[in-house]
């Protein structure tokens, strides 16, 4: 166990715990954006920065990535910390002014978009990389990744083409904090077009960002939609289930 203090409160946590997790234990709130408890810490949004003092040296660091150390002193609300958090939110208000979570966090901290900077209205994606990490670490598919670098950076399927690996599981859609990923369920018999691609007839699921539209599997007994065919096939192979395993929906199986 490792003992440290956060905002003058002492806490003891197992080795390998991050400052963010230790703070949660003390009910100390640290705002986050790119962090998700099921994913590897990324440290990209810089919203969770805190001030740490160890061996007489004080520095700012991201609490989601910093592992606790014995005797570490952490401060979560100093002026330095607030200044960086304000900057991050100001910049995100400029980049993704429509993102609800950014607006909420800014409101919470009393941050407003600086008059001097013109907002860009078109992009909800804040490049937190949660979709990429979820696709890689949780689903294990690796269908998407970052493309370009710096200010031109974006999340995309390889070469901006239709992703050949996407199984339309929708994890990226659900884990995105800003709603930057557009996914649509195409109803039975309905027709819809995949971006830069062909027309699909429902039941199907389209994820616009990765330019994929995949058919949904229906239960052979009741006809209800279960999940995308590719996703079920991926799962079936991964856990080595019999070929007809997903032919019937869970409720009909019971």
């Amino acid at each position: 166990m490792v003992k440290l203090t956060i905002d003058n409160q002492t806490v003891e946590v197992p080795e390998g715990t991050t400052i963010l997790e230790a703070a949660e234990k003390l009910n100390i709130y640290i705002p986050t954006l790119c962090h998700h408890e099921s994913l590897t810490p990324y440290g990209g949004c810089r919203l969770c920065v805190v001030e740490v003092t160890q061996n007489g040296v004080t520095d700012l660091t991201s609490s989601c990535t910093y592992k606790v150390e014995e005797g570490l002193k952490v401060k979560t609300t100093t002026e330095r910390v607030k200044r960086v958090r304000r900057l991050v939110l100001e910049l995100l208000l400029v980049e993704s002014p429509e993102a609800q979570i950014v607006q909420d966090l800014a409101m919470e901290m009393g941050v407003r978009r600086p008059e001097r900077l013109k907002p860009r209205k078109d992009d909800l994606c804040i490049l937190c990389g949660r979709c990429i990490r979820a696709c890689r670490e949780v689903v294990g598919v690796n269908a998407i990744d970052f493309a370009e670098r710096g200010y031109s950076k974006k999340v995309a399927a390889p070469f901006y083409k239709s992703s050949p690996d996407c199984i339309a599981c929708g994890v990226c859609f659900y884990i995105c904090p800003t709603g930057a990923i557009t996914m649509r369920e195409v109803e039975k018999g309905e027709k819809a077009r995949i971006p830069e691609g062909e027309e699909v007839t429902g039941p199907a699921r389209i994820i616009y960002n990765w330019k994929v539209g995949l058919a949904m599997k229906r239960c052979k007994k009741c006809g209800e939609i279960i999940a995308p065919e590719f996703q079920l096939e991926y799962l079936r192979k991964k856990v080595n289930l019999p070929e007809d395993h997903f032919d019937i929906c869970p409720s009909c199986r019971e």
Partner: peptide
């Protein structure tokens, strides 16, 4: 530097640009 920033963190990616 704007051109060479990797774009991972917000302050560098957007701050330098602005």
């Amino acid at each position: 530097l704007e051109d060479e920033s990797c774009g991972k963190c917000v302050p560098c990616r957007v701050g330098i640009r602005r």
